[in-house]
Design a protein around this nucleic acid. Structure first.
Length: 574
RNA sequence: GCGCCCGUAGCUCAGCUGGAUAGAGCGACGGCCUCCGGAGCCGUAGGUCAGAGGUUCGAAUCCUCUCGGGCGCGCCA
């Protein structure tokens, strides 16, 4: 363990055992970072109460057993019984050497899981819009974090590629005559809306569409071929958006609604056989306990509609079975907006009742709020239409292009373009990831592209600036063993550098990526403080210069890796 | 009507399983102009943590209620 906060755990366990007996050894030492020392342990107060002894006396007994070591350089008891801990610079130096020589402190978890992550999920033959932004960005960041921890991550892009709208979409495609599907999806909004309009206005068309749905569901070969054209064209389009956004989803990750089609009848049959599903007003429903509607009546999860059709609840249940039984997932993560909280918890409840979601498998809803416009309402264009995702991204990149051109005009055009994309896309992603996902946020280009504050450009700049030290000094990275912590600013930086793996663990557990953002911002700020007070290239001695160069390099690598876990690039110059 | 989520500085947000005077960024004001990219650093001002109870040695954090705001509540996904 290279994080001192983690390394202190066993030290306290041992001291607790010696001071108060084995049965109290596992007491949580309540270790926190401290403004009065490096760390503080707050356990003496509650423990004193349990033991019926004054907290300061308890703290004294613990401190006596803790003694001093490389790690625990000095302790003191403060106030009502806080134990302040000062960590030795030597310990920090060797921990940093280990981290710098290895994989930044990141280590594979002891028990890797298979984690299915359901995210992005756009609809075939429809434009991707802001509504897909958050799921795509958050899901991808979480997938990267879990993968970095050594878990087997199975991305599941739950495409909307099935259902009644495909009748009208296929008929509209046919009406286009020579027009190819590839051409049609070039303007997806227009394509879908035109189909919709014909469906609403033209009864003959609507009838054809309905017949087409029947053919589709019946497995008609020609119809399926047309359907596949639409799906393939859409997948190609989504791939282009993912490429621009830097999203790791590929064709192999597509697990659309149609995948579960053959499983739906079995889901219903089994629910009925188990007595969990009953007829209600002609529909087949499950009534999971604990959910009630407007009049306090039990709330149904409709698994088969009156007309015999299947709803999304059925698909969601089939997907759970697939992920548990076929994929072997022990953790299923749904990156889906908060309005679906009730629906998902009903699906989870039904799946548990049916035995498809055993106690060994966790299903988690990673809920998030809405993207708002400047008016604090759901983001729309001036015309009141939903904003195309691609338009938003293009504008972010073009604004970044202007900023880069202004700030660093000496770079050649190709590099400027690469940087503009990294900065523009990074800004959009970071703005989405950096605040608690449950809250709504206002989409504001100026703020997300600012080079001050908790933004991607600030962190990217911090990274580029560190890299520039090496260019400027024509320096090579010294060996890890060069690191010697001496100054307060170096120590502050060191403690943060060592906390990286703990923060990544925390994100993997809580699925709250904003904690990593907050950490990286803190780290970059600490580096600024270090850089201000500790000359690197102009250090007093060669050894000091090497130590600081190695610290700088380690900081740059962690910022780069941390941004990478969020799906954000860190150019070497900007 | 029931349920879920949110309400922290003028603005945008952190605040970890309750812990020592509630922290950043922007904006405002004032310093650092022989500075390794000043896209920086330091400082000042600014908060009844929506409100009221309760639990506790100790509450922004846990419980209850009230007030605001958002969302959901049978055949759309």
């Amino acid at each position: 363990m290279t994080d001192p906060l983690v390394a202190l755990g066993p030290v306290f366990r041992s001291a607790l055992g010696k001071a108060f007996g084995a049965e109290l050894a596992d007491t949580d030492p309540v270790l926190r970072s401290s403004q009065h020392a490096d760390f503080q342990a707050n356990l003496a107060l509650p423990l004193g109460k349990r033991l019926g002894r004054p907290p300061r006396e308890v703290a004294g007994a613990l401190v006596a057993e803790l003694g001093t070591s490389e790690l625990v350089e000095k302790t003191e008891i403060a106030g009502p019984g806080f134990i302040n801990i000062h960590v030795g610079n030597g310990w920090l130096s060797s921990a940093l050497a280990e981290v710098a020589a290895g994989s930044l402190g990141l280590a594979p978890v002891a028990h890797p899981e298979t984690v299915a992550i359901d995210y992005s999920s756009p609809n075939v033959a429809k434009e991707m819009h802001v509504g897909h932004l958050r799921s795509t960005i958050i899901g991808d960041a979480l997938a990267r974090v879990l993968e970095a921890q050594g878990h087997r991550v199975v991305r599941q892009n739950h495409l909307g590629d099935w259902g009644t709208p495909f009748g009208m979409l296929i008929e509209h495609l046919l009406d286009g005559g020579s027009e190819s599907a590839e051409h049609s999806v070039r303007d997806l909004n227009a394509f879908y809306q035109a189909a919709r309009k014909k469906f609403d206005d033209d009864p003959a068309f609507a009838e054809r569409a309905r017949r087409r749905v029947v053919l589709l569901q019946g497995g008609d070969a020609d119809t399926l071929a047309l359907w596949k054209k639409l799906v393939d064209a859409s997948k190609a389009y989504f791939a282009s958006v993912y490429a621009l956004l830097g999203i790791t989803l590929g064709d192999a990750d597509v697990a659309g609604e149609s995948l579960y089609n053959p499983l739906l009848a079995g889901v219903i049959a089994e629910l009925c056989a188990k007595g969990l599903a009953v007829d209600s007003d002609g529909a087949v429903c499950v009534f999971p306990p604990g959910f009630s509607g407007r009049e306090g009546e039990p709330l149904p999860l409709i698994i088969q509609k009156q007309d015999g059709g299947y709803g999304y609840a059925t698909t969601d249940l089939a997907a759970i079975r697939y992920r548990v039984e076929k994929l072997g997932a022990s953790r299923i993560v749904y990156v889906v907006g908060s309005p679906q909280a009730q629906h998902l918890s009903m699906v989870f409840a039904a799946a548990k009742l049916a035995g498809w979601l055993p106690a060994t498998v966790r299903a988690e809803h990673v809920a998030f709020g809405s993207v708002l416009g400047a008016d604090k309402k759901m983001l729309k264009t001036r015309a009141g239409e939903t904003t195309r995702l691609i338009d938003l991204l293009d504008e972010a990149v073009s604004r970044a292009r202007a900023i880069v051109a202004e700030k660093n005009p000496t770079l050649d055009a190709a590099e400027q373009e690469t940087i503009a994309r990294a900065v523009g896309i990074g800004a959009v992603k970071y703005a989405d990831l950096s605040s608690d996902r449950i809250k709504d946020y206002v989409f504001d280009f100026d703020r997300m592209l600012a080079f001050e504050g908790n933004t991607a450009p600030y962190l990217q700049y911090a990274h580029a600036r560190i890299r520039s030290i090496f260019r400027k000094g024509e320096a090579v990275v010294p060996p890890p063993s060069a690191i010697v912590i001496a100054q307060p600013a170096e120590k502050a930086l060191a403690k943060l550098l060592l906390a990286f793996p703990t923060v990544v663990d925390d994100v993997a557990t809580t699925l709250h990526p904003h904690k990593l953002c907050g950490y990286l911002f803190e780290l970059a700020t600490a580096f600024s403080g270090f850089y201000e007070s500790c000359p690197v290239l102009k250090a007093g001695t060669p050894a000091e210069r090497d130590s600081r160069l190695a610290l700088s390099d380690l900081t740059a690598r962690i910022v780069e890796r941390g941004l990478g876990l969020l799906g954000i690039e860190a150019p070497a110059r900007m």
